[in-house]
Simulated assay, not measured.
Amino acid sequence: MRAGFPVARKGMVIGLLGGSFDPAHGGHAHITREALKRMGLDRVWWLVSPGNPLKVQGPAPLPDRMARARAVMRDPRVVVSDLEARLGTRFTAETLTRLRAIYPGVRFVWLMGADNLGQFHRWERWEDILRMVPVGVLARPGWGVRARMSKAARIYGGDLVDRGEVLRSKRAPAWCFVNLPMDSSSSTAIRARGEWRR
């Protein structure tokens, strides 16, 4: 295995939670723990991205965001990683293509909050993502109905499964919407209150 890359064995099911984590907070940790439990994942890798192509302003420096993420998410089943910087990928579809080649026999499940499903159709090659790996959508405050009515949810409504653990073995395209107790933490709100330096 390459230096700096997480270890995964053939047959493992790894959830991937990508984002700028600017900053990481309790809400990220909450949905990660719920995904591990409700989807029967072996591990979750946080992919702390170098930047977000959909955001105009760049995030705080990557080392700062990595350090904060590691402080927030203390669970031996979770790896906080800068894989996208190491791979040199900018878009999720590129990252997934590379990871599937590097880790043959490992099953990946893409994880996202419901707020991301609401604008998923704006992501680069978003339909390729849905065809590559199952997707687990985790409820976020204020996004239940809007996420379920999103363009991606409407187009791929026939691929919706009713239980998260089904994603362990279901071939893509497949996705689920997981309702869970809400955590209202928000990176945007934390930055607005001045609790996180940029």
Rank of each mutant, 00 (worst) to 15 (best):
R98F: 02
R146P: 14
G118Y: 08
T188N: 08
Q57R: 14
D82M: 14
S187A: 12
N52I: 04
P53V: 01
G18S: 15
A152M: 09
S184M: 01
T32K: 01
R171P: 05
F21M: 15
T97Y: 00
R90S: 11
R163A: 06
T32N: 12
A114P: 11
P6K: 02
S184P: 05
M66K: 01
K10Q: 14
M1G: 12
M12T: 00
M1C: 06
G15M: 13
A85M: 08
V145H: 11
D75Q: 03
P63D: 02
L54K: 03
L83W: 13
P6I: 01
A85C: 07
L41S: 13
H30F: 14
R140P: 07
W175E: 03
V137R: 02
A8K: 00
C176T: 15
Q57T: 13
V48A: 08
M12W: 00
P63A: 02
S185P: 07
T95I: 14
L16R: 00
R148G: 14
E165K: 03
E94M: 08
R38F: 00
A24H: 09
R140K: 10
I14M: 11
R148I: 11
R43W: 07
R90Y: 04
Y156M: 05
A85F: 04
R171V: 07
V106H: 10
K151D: 10
V106D: 03
L111V: 09
